[in-house]
Design a protein around this nucleic acid. Sequence first.
DNA 1: AAAAATATGTTGCATTTACAACAGTATTAT
DNA 2: ATAATACTGTTGTAAATGCAACATATTTTT
Lengths: 155, 155
Amino acid sequence: MTDSKLQHYTDSIHYELEQTARLMRILTLQLFEKLEISISPDEYFALDTVSINAGICQRDLAKLLLKDRANTGRILNSLEEKGFITRFIDTKNNRLVKKMGITEAGLRELGSINKKIKRYFDGITKKISTEEVDRVHEALKKFRLDLEKNVNMNI
Amino acid sequence: MTDSKLQHYTDSIHYELEQTARLMRILTLQLFEKLEISISPDEYFALDTVSINAGICQRDLAKLLLKDRANTGRILNSLEEKGFITRFIDTKNNRLVKKMGITEAGLRELGSINKKIKRYFDGITKKISTEEVDRVHEALKKFRLDLEKNVNMNI
DNA sequence: AAAAATATGTTGCATTTACAACAGTATTAT
DNA sequence: ATAATACTGTTGTAAATGCAACATATTTTT
């Protein structure tokens, strides 16, 4: 199973990661549509991250989302238009930056979405062996933290 | 760690999957550019899959790639233009389909790419704990196979 | 002090992607 | 038999994405 025996892409961990993530993305998208959630999964992810990191600036948020500054800004435009976040000019290291925070409406929306999707994902992960899910989750986290050291992010 | 304790998206397995896969994708893209590989990672994945499933038709390939028929066709157009695959009309269940196979040039290219990237990925996964990689890999595979049962793919 | 490099956010563009509609054929239902 | 449905691949289109370029402002270098 180690890479030294790798002969085909489908035998690699890259394949498993890519395909599993793709499946999960499709599943999540279908769920958001079915539950008629007003924002996209990406916007939900950004909103949740802002709620945890109050006062973060756009570039730092982009680093957390692993998206470039351009698209991070566009997602924030959408969330701001919907009234779920507020943005304000501030300074960071003597530089002007756009910081942000979640609004009351944003918090309500976030809670509402969490409540909605929790029920469905619980249903799905119950069908899947729970201890397997936890194993994958923990192993993935360690792996991701190691990966971050090897990827050159220029955001 | 189970979903019942989920409070934030960043605590979920969805987040870990999405972000880890995103990092891996960026890493792979950077590697393909650095090694001046003539096809994209997606084309490489398709080429490898065709090499394993000789005579597969486009729709069945799309199901393996988890891409829609339109984009699968476009990727195959590119691979065909480069001379790495050949396509031919055949029948499957009495229906006309476009089947395909890898060419000699395609096999050479595939082997060349495998050789090139193997060295680099071995280097990276050596920095990361190897047994961790294998653990993630195995756990992911089981998880993906379970996930497939729960996602409604209409390809 | 002047020039170069860095930090931050936005805009534009070319590529990728997903999705729907279409064309053609075969199967199934009525 | 005729209509309706399903299968397969392509085309068109709107949205998402990544990347480079730009505008400002600050820090660092010379």
